[in-house]
Design a protein around this nucleic acid. Sequence first.
RNA 1: GGGGCGGUAGCUCAGCUGGUUAGAGCAGUGGACUCAUAAUCCAUCGGUCACGGGUUCAAGUCCCGUCCGCCCUACCA
Length: 529
Amino acid sequence: MAAADTFSISTPIFYVNDAPHIGHAYTEVAADVLARWNRQSGRDTWSLTGTDEHGQKILRTAVANGVSPKEWADKLVDEAWVPLLKTIDIQNDDFIRTTEDRHESVVQAFLQKLYDTGFIYDGEYEGFYCVGCEEFKQHGDLVEGAGEFDGQLVCPIHGRPVEVLKEKNYFFRMSDFQQRLLDLYESQPDFLQPDSVRNEIVSFVRRGLDDLSISRQSFDWGVRVPWDDSHVVYVWFDALLNYISALGWEPTADAPAFERFWPSNHIVGKDIARFHSVIWPAMLMAADLPVPRRVFAHGWLLVGGEKMSKSKLTGIAPSQITDVFGSDAFRYYFLRAINFGQDGSFSWEDLSARYQAELANGFGNLASRVVSMVGRYCDGILPAATEVTAAEERIHEVLASAVARAEGAMDRFAIHEALAAIWTVVDELNGYLTEQEPWKVAKDEERTARLHTILYTAADGLRALAVLLSPVTPQATQKLWRALGAESALGSLTDQRIPDAGVWGQLPAGAVVSPMEGLFPRIEQEAAV
RNA sequence: GGGGCGGUAGCUCAGCUGGUUAGAGCAGUGGACUCAUAAUCCAUCGGUCACGGGUUCAAGUCCCGUCCGCCCUACCA
């Protein structure tokens, strides 16, 4: 079991059938910010992402494109999914692909263990299968087709006809775990969040669970069932195991990384919450392994009031945003504007407005004015604070409170709340400068000490902001860190501990404050439609 | 059919276990200021809290019903 001071987190592994859109990027960014935050909070941290590459859908796509499924997967991983991580500045510790040996061997070992312990049996399954969903459908789930599929039964999600499949399958005794799952949801309420998703899953499980068909015979693009190579493992059963295969789990031998970092926190979209909160913990229970620390389901990105989708042409590539606003702005915007866990509206207007108001005019301009004044009035040498008044004490209090609230919020994965708390410091410092009017104080030679106190206070406030915002806007805060001359005295930015960020007076007087490019330059209007 | 979530200022959203004149940000308007990215700060305009009943000394906040949106789930066939 992982020790108390560790933190491990995963994104879903993404299906390599399409190019990434901002919904995928949103998930990645959220997990990345939580990982960076926890790492900077002093926890032994590990973050995982990767790709899901098996299944009939990918096989068919590859065939349609005239390549082997592995070639298809390689191409998408190299050209789309790995580059995505760079586009949005993800700092993952590992990247797992389900076609890697280290994964497939774990899938087989896990399956064999369940087979040996009686949790898997063979049976026959006949049903309607949707290739798009990679799952069997109940008759009632299907709808009448229209247009070219008139008269046929089609999958309501994909709008394409389902196929009647009858095959020998291996089944996992998931039904055995109904009560243990219900007990889990009840005894550990934060196992599955937010509550809206939790409620749905609880009522779903209460109705009873069927055993799960976990093998397929009709195609061969998947992990072989170890004792029967005419079957491949059902893609979801395969995919979920990435969370422990990446940690090197083994059924018999010790696995140091697994011991150190399992159980993980899983960030998922709410569409796949059920796989992660029902099937996955049941699998782990069967194998006598700890269930995940937490499954957190985030909401949809809504574009024009509707769930973003490629088919409706509302799909947006992350680079469309980062090319204009940069990766920091992408990361900040989606985490600040959307209640993590709820659906959230995306619009270019809102993105543009928040960039301008909060990043450029708020944080960026604050940094500019402080750095500029230290340069102008103190020759770029940070002065000392000597006379602390109520105004400075007020700043200290706001900062301490912001740190405490941000930490509490991040522990609950309420990322938007944490950002709102941190931003009170930005607003307070801007107000402080306007009220203290250091540009006027500078004209009075008898008030030099006062001037120095004001500038020091503002600069040390920026130091705290750089630390607190480093997980969210790593590029801009690094620029600021350098400009403040903090590195030589305090060390690198990412080594600064978040719990200590509110301790006042860390920037040493005498630090060399150097001119700085704007953290968030104004964006010309035509770029944002 | 059963269930969940949401419907609060022009826009995006807060409002916990019911309690003074319903809040924030953005946008709008007026003013102050000039260190700064034509930035900042202050003030101000703006809401029948979807609708109709009910409980209560008191209800966005609880109960019932209706309408709208999204979602989970079931079934007739």
